[in-house]
């Protein structure tokens, strides 16, 4: 899983590298284009294009019927019924390619989330750091946190025994990869905290976790794995959510990808000979 994640992350890193210093909208546009093309190709080869074409034609025919025979109420109602029927068929024909699209699209979205979902801390910005222990008998009071030079721990630990978790609030002081050191009996875990004011950086709110967490590894490409025998189950840093500004509007990256990939898909469907 790690190798797979590394390969995909490597690819995304490669694609994003030229765009790191640019406004994220440009790299998102590129990914939207790629997503559009990939989804078109998948749709083309996994859907019954003929049936989709027929269903769409029938829907359009019955829409024309609404205006051509608008004075015949019976025909208008019948056309409405037929539009519904063929719409459902159309959706049925779109379900199969949708299922095929889910896996690659999920992987792509996970990667994009790791780049565009959260941003690093800025200097003088605070965040909550959480450490969750395994049920291995260790006491929460045995665990301490030490901050490196460019970062400070603002609060004493907040221990939540019910969840077997300790929270601290940290504050970033300087740009750079800062380090937090968790002192656990018998172990010392160093956790990188990224502090940066500009550029795209891959960050994961779930900073470290035990390798046994398959889902966490899959969903958090930037995750640092913890040894399997570590008493710590996970360490999370509450990085701020990233929002992309478009004409003073703060838009979530997923909205941009969704809209642009649909626009690109629609614009290129003729070129790829795909009936959507």
């Amino acid at each position: 899983m790690q190798s797979f994640n590394r390969a995909i992350s490597g690819f995304f890193n490669l694609v994003i590298t030229p765009f790191k210093a640019m406004d994220p909208i440009w790299s998102l546009a590129l990914f939207s284009l790629l997503i559009g093309i990939i989804m078109l190709v998948i749709f083309r080869y996994t859907s019954d294009q003929q049936k989709i074409r027929e269903a769409k034609s029938r829907i359009r025919a019955h829409i024309f019927e609404l205006s051509l025979f608008k004075d015949e109420i019976g025909i208008v109602l019948s056309a409405q019924k037929n539009i519904l029927i063929y719409n459902l068929r159309y959706i049925k024909y779109a379900l199969k390619p949708m299922l095929f699209m889910m896996i690659p699209l999920a992987l792509i979205l996970i990667q994009l989330e790791s780049w565009y979902g959260h941003r690093p801390l800025k200097p003088d910005e605070s965040a909550i750091v959480s450490l969750k222990l395994r049920d291995n008998g260790l006491a929460l009071s045995d665990i301490t946190l030490t901050a490196g030079e460019g970062i400070t721990v603002e609060t004493p630990p907040l221990r939540i025994p019910d969840r077997n978790e300790i929270d601290w609030r940290i504050r970033a002081l300087e740009n750079g990869d800062q380090v937090l050191t968790f002192n656990v009996p018998g172990d010392e875990i160093r956790q990188k905290v990224i502090v940066s004011e500009r550029g795209l950086v891959q960050v994961s709110p779930l900073a470290s976790a035990s390798v046994s967490g398959f889902t966490d590894t899959l969903l958090n490409p930037a995750l640092s794995p913890l040894p399997g025998d570590s008493p710590v189950e996970r360490i999370s840093i509450d990085y701020p959510a990233m929002s992309i500004e478009i004409y003073k509007w703060h838009v979530h990256w997923l909205v941009i990808v969704l809209v642009l990939s649909i626009v690109f898909g629609f614009a290129l469907k003729g070129l790829f000979g795909v009936e959507i």
Binding site: I35, M39, M101, L105, A106, G265
Partner: peptide
């Protein structure tokens, strides 16, 4: 459904 199904099925839905 379209939030996760991209330009193909997304547009269809």
């Amino acid at each position: 459904a379209y939030a996760y199904i991209g330009p193909g099925a997304g547009f269809a839905f």
